[in-house]
Every structure is written in structure tokens, then in C-alpha cells.
Computed example of a mutant assay.
Amino acid sequence: MTIKDIAKELGLSVATVSRVLNKHKNVSFETRKKVQDLMDETMYTPNAIARNLSNQNNKTIAVLVPNISNPFFADLINIICKYFYKVGYGITLYNTSEDLCIEEASIKKILEQRVSGVVAILMKSKYVKNPLDTLERFHIPCVLLDRELEDSDMPGVFIDNIKGAYDITKKLITEGHKDIAIITGDLNLKTAKDRLKGYEKAHREIGLDINSKNIYIGDFTLDSGYNAACKILETNSTAIFACNNVMLVGVLKLLTEKNKHLRLACFESLDILNILNYNVLSCNIPLEEMGKEVFEILKNKTKDRIYIEPVMRG
């Protein structure tokens, strides 16, 4: 965002905005307040001015990711980088570490740059105010990736989480498993809620009761998978469905320590498990297709919302 953006948004001249920022006295209180209020709302800082004297975009794409150590996110971003590098764009990565304060600060930094677009994997599915609205207000195109925002029609590329979880659960049931423990993510995320919906849908269609004691609320971290598995081993469950690959690693850690064997399923595949000869039922998510669709939406500046179907394997 530049001085020109602020001036255009408020219907003021660039010179007037400049006088406000430089604290000149010959500016009315009302005008000064309008400029300051917009700066506060957009988290704009005056020290961005010197870096943004040019009105040209700098051929950079900003990527917001909640946890770069998650193999799923790392692989997906690697593919996105490949597509943009081919056409001469750079990538600036913001790892928010599942921290709302870091996410807010990262968006503020993005506003200070002249990026050509933003790919955002946000922390939450519901905010009081969409944190990306300010970016779009200043004509910075944004594409959501993987995690949907509720009550928003922003363009994005998502996984059909309900179908993937439904397919996995149905396969476990047809294998003869009636007590299937599921470890969900944080149910404040639409991703986690939809995967639980798929699990429940498979039970209902086959006529099996949904036992609430088989539902363990995790948070997509290794520790939550490990802790849930500790509780599951005290039950009669014969299968565990971990809703992401990081929680599955936590489950495997516990089962290895206890020398226990249960049928395992995971929403996301983890290639190293095949190398280690673990038979895990999983969804193969077409990451290449997701990365390409993100690239196409930003390149063509469309408003598409695309849902990718995962393919079950194992």
C-alpha cells in the first residue's frame, strides 16, 4: 500500500496525505482523523512510504502458512513456488506458527509491500472481520488455500473434506470395523468440522450408531495425536482415523512404545509410511493440481472457488 492508495481510498490528494504523515499543521482535524483511522484499520505504517515510492508491483507473491513444518503444507507450497518461479515471480513466505498475533503482523507486513498477490492458509475459519479484506480493499488479490473461511465467497482452492473422510470411514466399516476412533482437528476450523461430518455421514448411511466416545478432539499436532491414542488404547476401538498426517505420527509413536497394533487411517497420505512398510488407509491429495489451480486463479485474476477430490489409497 502506498500514499496514493490512501489518497484514492479517502478521496484526498497525495499532497494532503503526505502532509498528515509528516505532521504539518495546516491540515484540518477531520482530515487528519480520516487518514489516521484508515492507517489504523489497515495497519499501515508510515515507514513503508520510503520502500514504496514506485507504484509498480514487485513481482512477488506472499504466502501465509500456519505451520511450515507440517509436511502437507511444505509440499504444497513447494509446488506453488515452482509455478510462480517459472514466470519470474518470487515468493515471500510468512509462517504464522498457528499464532493470531503473528498472522496479524504478517498481514501488516504484506500491506507494506507491493506484492502482486497473496496465497493464504489462515488459522481460523471464522473471524469477527475477514483479515484479508484490507488487502483486497487495496486491490491486492488474495486466494484462500486448503482452509475455507465461513460466510465468505473469496476465491480459493480447497479439498473436499467431507467426501475424503466419508470414503475412508466407509472403507473401514466395510472391513468389519464397528468401533472406529476418530481424532479430529480443532473444530473451530471448517476443515476439521467437515472431516468429522464425513465420518458421521458414513456411519449414518450404513446404519451404525455414532458413539460420541469414539470422537477425540485434537488440534492437528503430534502431541494431540499421541494423547488421543493413549485414551483410545483403553477402549475397544479396533481402528484409528487420524484427520491429518502429523497427528498420525503421534499415534504411531504411542503404538510403537506400547507395541500395539490397530488398523490405521489418515486423511492425508505420508509417503515415508510406505517406505517403512506401514499399511495405512489414506487419502492421496492431488497437490500438483491444487498448486496449479492457485497459480491460475492469481494469474487470471478470477474469483473461482475450486474443490479438489482426494483419492483413497491403501
Rank of each mutant, 00 (worst) to 15 (best):
K33I: 00
G314Y: 00
T174H: 15
L172E: 03
E268F: 11
N55A: 13
Y278W: 08
E234G: 05
L276S: 09
T221Q: 06
T134P: 15
D40N: 13
K258Q: 09
V87E: 14
S224C: 11
G291W: 00
M43E: 09
S282D: 15
P286S: 00
A120C: 10
E103S: 04
D133L: 06
P71T: 03
Y89D: 11
L281T: 04
G198K: 01
S237K: 13
C81P: 06
V27H: 03
V157F: 04
H139F: 10
L189R: 07
N211Y: 02
Q113T: 12
K190F: 11
D5H: 11
T235Q: 06
K190A: 10
C142T: 11
L264D: 11
L255W: 05
S28P: 08
C142G: 05
A165G: 14
C243N: 05
I140E: 03
I173S: 08
P155Q: 01
V249C: 08
I272P: 11
V35D: 05
C266E: 03
D146W: 01
N52H: 02
R313H: 14
L135W: 01
H261C: 15
V294D: 14
A181E: 08
S28C: 07
N78Q: 13
L281D: 07
S69G: 11
A7P: 15
N161A: 02
H203E: 05
D160F: 00
S69H: 05
